[in-house]
């Protein structure tokens, strides 16, 4: 009898890329629901726009590169990139900015470097930074959270605003939007206010900014799900948060009136999302266990440095991109000791 041959191992393999990416998307759901609850339906519109653009762009580039289209679309990696960018954008981001960002992420950052697995930079974060640097005003116009929002927009109004149709009568951008908490903190500190003065503002909640802190918590739930499902390891989220808390805690201990409480750093911006979903992007992160600890820690510290002394209120995107650059070097110097390594081989 004759049989087909192929190489070992034999059996139904337990993992596949689609499942990995699919579970990342699933893990994002609680955080996205929280975002919609606190900041309105704009997030959903952004996500739909971004995902559609990403899939079209991915298919287009793959066709140009003469690569099979279907497996790449079904691996959901483009979808994850699109969703991560979309939820990092302000809820009323103009439609063309979202599309521009996604195109940049998929075409330039991902495919011009060789496609999935070959891009040195996190596509979503590179696109976010592109938009932030190019359109700083639009990118810092967030909505106030639900409990502080005096003029909530419904779905139709949001859609009109995003598509460039302007705001409902009687409203101006200034009345509708507000600065992000990190931005507010930064501006007020610049005006030489003390932390206790700033904390009087109703925008601050129990451990971070109101609304934001709960979005962070729900992303944390998703992140823990990823840990439990072993999609990510604990190294990067842990060390990144540790890096941020350590750096901010140290300064806070010395000067609690001009340095915000570490919890504020953790729960007022993109830190939780960044720690569990963005810095853990396997393609661009360090891959050795020790390397991941260093990589995450340095991102955490860099986030604090940029937030405190840099030119931008939030810094997760910058910090991640900077460490993307360092990842190959970190990997090189953190190779694990192989089984049975002889004394003289120890690194």
């Amino acid at each position: 009898m004759k049989f087909p041959v192929h190489t070992s191992p034999y059996g139904a393999l337990p993992n596949n890329v689609t499942r990995v990416m699919g579970e990342v998307l699933l893990a994002l759901v609680p955080g996205i629901i929280a975002l919609v609850y606190y900041f309105g339906p704009g997030v959903l519109i952004n996500i739909s726009l971004a995902v559609t653009t990403a899939l079209v762009a991915e298919a287009g580039v793959l066709r140009l590169r003469h690569r099979p289209v279907r497996p790449a679309l079904t691996d959901l990696s483009a979808t994850v990139t699109a969703v991560l960018l979309a939820i990092a954008l302000p809820p009323l981001t103009p439609w063309w900015m979202t599309i521009l960002g996604v195109l940049f992420a998929i075409v330039m950052v991902k495919h011009l470097y060789g496609g999935l697995g070959y891009n040195p930079f996190n596509p979503a974060m590179a696109a976010y930074v592109l938009l932030l640097v190019s359109f700083p005003v639009d990118m810092t116009q967030w909505l106030p959270p639900e409990m502080l929002n005096e003029h909530p927009l419904n779905l139709a109004q949001t859609l009109t605003a995003i598509l460039g149709g302007g705001l409902p009568d009687g409203l101006t951008w200034d009345t509708v939007t507000s600065a992000t908490p990190l931005d507010a903190m930064r501006e007020q500190l610049k005006m030489n206010k003390t932390i206790s003065e700033i904390a009087q503002n109703p925008m601050w909640g129990d451990f971070g900014a109101r609304g934001w802190e709960w979005v962070g918590n729900w992303f944390l739930v998703g992140g823990l799900f990823l840990l439990w499902r072993k999609i990510i390891t604990w190294h990067i989220p842990f060390s990144m948060i540790a890096g941020l808390l350590l750096a901010s805690g140290l300064f806070w201990l010395f000067d609690a009136e001009s340095m915000p409480f570490p919890g504020f750093h953790l729960f007022s911006g993109g830190m939780i999302l960044g720690a569990f979903f963005i810095a853990t992007d396997p393609v661009t992160a360090s891959t050795t266990p020790k390397g991941r600890l260093i990589y995450g820690f340095l991102i955490g510290v860099t986030v604090f440095i940029i937030r405190t002394w840099g030119g931008y209120p939030d810094a997760v995107a910058f910090a991640v991109l900077l460490m993307n650059m360092a990842a190959p070097t970190i990997d090189y110097y953190t190779r694990p000791r192989v089984f049975g390594a002889r004394e003289e081989d120890h690194g």
């Binding site: 139904a12 890329v17 999935l116 697995g117 891959t287 000791r337």
Partner: peptide, 30 residues
């Protein structure tokens, strides 16, 4: 079912699952 034909390989996404699984403590992805 016990030995399905192999799928087409996708690009390595450097997830590090192989590092966790390698009993020789190597870096299979590298």
């Amino acid at each position: 079912e016990e030995a399905p034909d192999p799928d087409k390989a996708m690009p390595c996404i450097r997830c590090g699952k192989c590092v966790e699984a390698c009993p020789a403590q190597l870096l299979p992805q590298q």
